[in-house]
Amino acid sequence: MGSLELRAVSKNWGGAAAVDDVTFSVTEGNLVALLGPSGCGKSTTLRLIAGLEQCSSGAIAIGGQDVTNAPPSGRGIAMVFQNYALFPHLSVAENIAFGLKVRKVPRAERDDRLARAAEILGLGALMDRKPSQLSGGQQQRVALGRAIVAQAPVCLMDEPLSNLDAQLRVEMRREIRELQQRLGITMVYVTHDQVEAMTMADQVVLMRNGRIEQDAPPDRLYEVPATIFAARFVGTPPMNVVPLATLATRSNGDVLVAPRGLDPAAVAVGVRPERTVIGERGIAADVVAVEYLGADTLIETRIDSHRFIVRRPGKIRATPGERVHIELSHTDLHWFDLGSERRLTV
């Protein structure tokens, strides 16, 4: 009932494609995060699903029904806007019940659903306030209330937490996820923050320049990135990706060799900063900076001109300018084709 499917959806703004041949599907009751850098087409994709923009080509189905040409109100969706889009002259209660009134839901049921939404979101004491009398977090809750009171099977959110401070963001993140799971809502959640996507989502759709880079669960996205872009976008600090040729010339121990069948000159090696060890043997690197974070230490080095970050638990002594050796384990390496930037299966 609340499943969602996009088939080869594209959107052009007078020539330039903002969304280009996007295909993915979401199982009912799942939270999918649309992740990607600013301008990659996340909002446009969301607005296409909402029906606020028309697809240039492709098809969208919600709950098995084709809604490509349906109006926004006929798609069974609710939406939380980045700026909340609360009606400034209406009280919290009127804002939340606006859609119910428009859809002529009977008075008794309306009051019932309003009361339940207020209770779920802890808005009881604020029902008569105007949006301008609320804090950012409270406004966010009202926007959420308006979305859940509609009881739409699919809920769309466009960077809902970007206007909140860091502390509140962490709280709301948890709250939204809990709410989504409790009510069994299918949710499409747009964010440029990979931490948000990784912590909240059942499925992450990573986008770049209007195309899907990778569509996978968070753990898989982290462990088996499909491209160099995906590898470097997810995780802080990002994955180290260095051409094999560079590493080979700098090793004082066992020389890294490309897996059988690969051209050593055309591959890059990726390794997560936490999967590296500083030791006696390995790849020679020059320390550029050391950052002590308490639980671990980040050591930023250069291997020729390539940045390479080592992350080790606890406190590590190193001074900028010092030469260290980085040991890599073969099982922790990711292999990418330098030309296509795609992952190579070994």
């Binding site: 909402a50 109100s73 939406m79 889009a85 009606f87 606006f98 859609g99 428009v102 509609a150």
Partner: peptide, 27 residues
């Protein structure tokens, strides 16, 4: 008036007239 108010109203199923009467005119 931010366009997102109109979009929010459209998603809630408000007609053009309802949007005018309930949102635009009061504002």
């Amino acid at each position: 008036i931010p366009p997102s108010l109109g979009e929010a109203a459209a998603i809630e199923g408000a007609s053009r007239w309802t949007y005018f009467r309930r949102i635009q005119f009061p504002l």
